[in-house]
Design a protein around this nucleic acid. Structure first.
Length: 427
RNA sequence: GCGGGCGUCGCCAAGUGGUUAAGGCAGCGGCUUGUGGCGCCGCUAUUCGGGGGUUCGAAUCCCCUCGCUCGCCCCA
């Protein structure tokens, strides 16, 4: 292939697709606004150590999926594989946490070197929420509710919320010792991947998809049994909070987070309408992360939502097609004087807030009008020699009745503004 | 990193060893320098992802390679 192509897993979003993306982004922005959550934007490129320390050396993400390279100053840089570590880093760096709890959201591209498949790309997009400095169980509930309401208002079908608790760091440490002992005792019955994980990330063994391992695990010590009374009580309050909001959920004791920084509440929102990559939103509490990255001990909870999967879901459901970017007015002109008038006219209309497409081809009227029709414009303004001389246009309604009127420029703007032109994207 | 499926024009797609690679959509030009949505006419792949091989002859068979796609893994 001689022509150049985008890199594997790096996807172009064509005009036909960007409308839906903008709709999702605008909806998310509006939900955050209503929840008094402020946006934070951090660099795409960070020092590699941030992710190594934040996400965990033993995770697959850090171990084999990062885009890491040396820059010209020999610094090890990494394209961010997720958003939380960067947000926490920025909050620490700029002293945000000493100004009280922070309610933050972020969005944008993330990078993971994985094999692409449905709903998974190497450059993918997330929108995420981070509540920093919030310890109460009700903040877990609020975070989940914001995600749930956002997805619901987008009209996503087949959603299910699964939750679990990972307990406190102390609980997990105690449980980990217990689990490792048990796994060692059954080592030869485990699949190779799981054997590997005993040393690296034993909790992830619980999540193994391997059938034999799964059935063996039925007799393994459970995390639930290892929880302290406080952790248990905390989780009960989260569940009660969800019940009070009538948000349905399913307890999933096998739900473990892949990233090291999670504790207590972990949750996932999945859709039955996706393929293998069913998780649309995943998150949980990460009370230890801020301290681990060098800040003062700060409790926090957050989630991230995968836009590729969300958009996939929305385009499957036969949603009322996102309004195409059709102009309000298409300006047809022919002849020197007419063409000279066309651009000022277009600018005048644009200044009034109308979407105006200018035909600069100088082609026959029939051609230009055909294009006007095709592009979905509501009105066409036709300017020829006669109109140019009189400083007028012929306004044609391309949609409803084939009415045609001869108007002066200011009158034209007046007429158009009355039409349903004020249809800006509803946030 | 490991499996399966696929690769003919911008999109859909016929063609499965024999002279010039159907058709549809979209695009462009014309019928029509003064009026669109319909119609008609014409143009748009020396070439079948790329390379090599088999053969008198290949889009059609073989090998390699690249890409897409679905799944495993992982995760959002």
């Amino acid at each position: 292939m001689s022509s150049l192509q985008s890199l594997r897993g790096m996807v172009d979003l064509l005009p036909a697709a960007t409308g839906l993306w903008q709709h999702v982004e605008a909806t998310a922005r509006e939900h955050f606004r209503r929840a008094a959550v402020a946006e934070i934007r951090t660099p795409l490129l960070e020092v590699t150590e941030l992710f190594a320390r934040g996400i965990g050396e033993a995770t697959d993400v850090v171990g084999k999926e990062m885009y890491t390279f040396l820059d010209r100053g020999e610094r090890s840089c990494t394209l961010r594989p997720e958003g939380t570590a960067s947000v926490v880093r920025a909050a620490i760096q700029h002293g945000l946490l000493s100004q009280g709890p922070q309610r933050l959201w972020y969005g944008g591209p993330m990078f993971r070197y994985e094999r692409p498949q449905a709903g998974r790309q190497r450059q993918f997009h997330q929108i995420g929420l981070e509540l920093l400095g919030f310890a109460a169980p009700r903040s877990d509930v609020e975070a989940i509710a914001i995600a749930w309401d956002l997805l619901a208002s987008l009209g996503v079908g087949g959603l299910a919320l699964e939750i679990n608790t990972l307990g406190s760091a102390a609980d997990r440490l105690r449980y980990r010792t217990e689990l490792v002992a048990w796994l060692e005792a059954h080592r030869d019955q485990l699949d190779p991947d799981s054997q590997q994980r005993i040393a690296t990330n034993p909790l992830r063994v619980l999540d193994s998809k391997h059938p034999a391992t799964q059935s063996l695990l039925a007799d393994a010590p459970t995390l639930a049994a290892a929880l302290s009374a406080e952790s248990r009580e905390r989780f009960a309050r989260v569940r009660q909070g969800l019940e009070a909001l009538a948000i349905p959920f399913r307890l999933n004791p096998r739900l473990v987070r892949g990233l090291d920084y999670y504790s207590h509440t972990a949750f996932e929102i999945t859709s039955s309408q996706l393929g293998a990559q069913a998780t649309v939103c995943g998150g949980g509490r990460y009370d230890g992360l801020v301290e681990q990255l060098g800040g003062a001990a700060t409790p926090a909870i957050g989630w991230a939502l995968g836009l590729e999967r969300l958009v996939l879901l929305l385009s499957q459901a036969d949603q009322p097609a996102a309004p195409a970017a059709a102009p309000d007015l298409y300006v047809v002109s022919r002849g020197e004087a007419a063409e000279a008038l066309a651009l000022p006219l277009a600018r005048r209309c644009r200044a009034a807030g109308l979407a105006v497409e200018l035909d600069a081809s100088g082609a026959a009227f029939a051609k230009q009008l055909r294009r006007a029709d095709r592009c979905g414009a509501r009105f066409a303004a036709v300017i020829g020699d006669a109109e140019a001389a009189a400083q007028e246009v012929v306004l044609k309604n391309l949609r409803g009745e084939a009415a045609e009127r001869r108007l002066g420029l200011e009158a034209l703007v007046g007429v158009l503004e009355q039409g349903p032109a004020a249809r800006r994207p509803v946030a």
